[in-house]
Design a protein around this nucleic acid. Sequence first.
DNA 1: TCCATTATATGATCGAAATCATATTTGAAC
DNA 2: GTTCAAATATGATTTCGATCATATAATGGA
Lengths: 188, 188
Amino acid sequence: MLPSPFNELDKNAYAAKTYDEGEFVFRQNDGPYSIYFLQTGIVQLERHTAHGDKVIIHRASEGQTFAEASLFSEAYHCDAVTITHSQIIVLQKSAILNAMRTNLHFAETLTARFAHQVQAYRHSLEIRSTRPAIERVYTAIAQGMLTSDVISLATEIGLTHEATYRALSELIAAGRIRKTARGKYSLA
Amino acid sequence: MLPSPFNELDKNAYAAKTYDEGEFVFRQNDGPYSIYFLQTGIVQLERHTAHGDKVIIHRASEGQTFAEASLFSEAYHCDAVTITHSQIIVLQKSAILNAMRTNLHFAETLTARFAHQVQAYRHSLEIRSTRPAIERVYTAIAQGMLTSDVISLATEIGLTHEATYRALSELIAAGRIRKTARGKYSLA
DNA sequence: TCCATTATATGATCGAAATCATATTTGAAC
DNA sequence: GTTCAAATATGATTTCGATCATATAATGGA
């Protein structure tokens, strides 16, 4: 349920909590006390500038952890607000830091998790910079990114699903991919 | 010169190397032996699919490290090719893993580095998804992202410099920002 | 089984940003 | 001081993808 290495933590190192839409999970300059695993829902991380402008830093979605960097800072640097009703596992910062210091395997697995996330985000940025859309979709198919449905893929690569469906049609017409089933495609 | 915590490594844990344009820094399925700090130049990470398509995973630019995730894998999963003549510091994987296991401070600083990179990439993805361009540029200015020149900012936020200059003009016309000097702007 | 919802798919239109072009300003190099 | 390159800036045009619309097929629940 919890992603590795957090599943190795002692049970009392974390607790499940539910939040209504619009609740604050934490506030800028608070704590930081915890990092978070979002089981269901959406949480938005926002910062307020000196001029009062709201800046959205990140939108966390289901299955993601957030506020990891607060493990290494003296305060949260943004607000976290639930956009929908959300179920969140709250992981004690102190417990994680302690596990990092006393459990070499935990420490290494956590570092690996972050390193792989860096890799994945770089990849995401790269594919989102691929233009035009037809090449972006082709690249995504070539990499086997169409694992669930086309709409999810579209979101992942930063296109509307309409643009993605159109690109898929054009790729078929050009003989570059084949349709193997409804919503399933493979390279020609 | 080397970003923290790599500057704490023993001198013989790394070595500077120069590569001509088009040279391979490493190849898919090799090693992995090392991670890399790119001092000057551009390095492209590419993968080849079963169908022979080249997929660009990431373009590393000056001042960045790359292939960090290979610390935790049994082989490089892509090729690294220099796009321009490049100066690279090659850091021994074994030395880094050793430092992680024997030096708690090194381990924690490395984990923090990755966590902060995750945070930065999430932020980058978020701002790049901000539409229209004028709001993206405003958000960037509000966050103080214009630290060097407009062209660099444009690249950072995923716009052409023309679009960025135009957005800046419109923001001035709308009274939302002020021009403080050539190429310098602040919130109105 | 029927109904509601979601995914798939394509058509039409529009607008935003890329592209191409050009001028000016500035700073660095010689 | 002059030259050259790079950054700043704006204009004209085009194109790509977003948006809005609509239809069908599949899926899950009552």
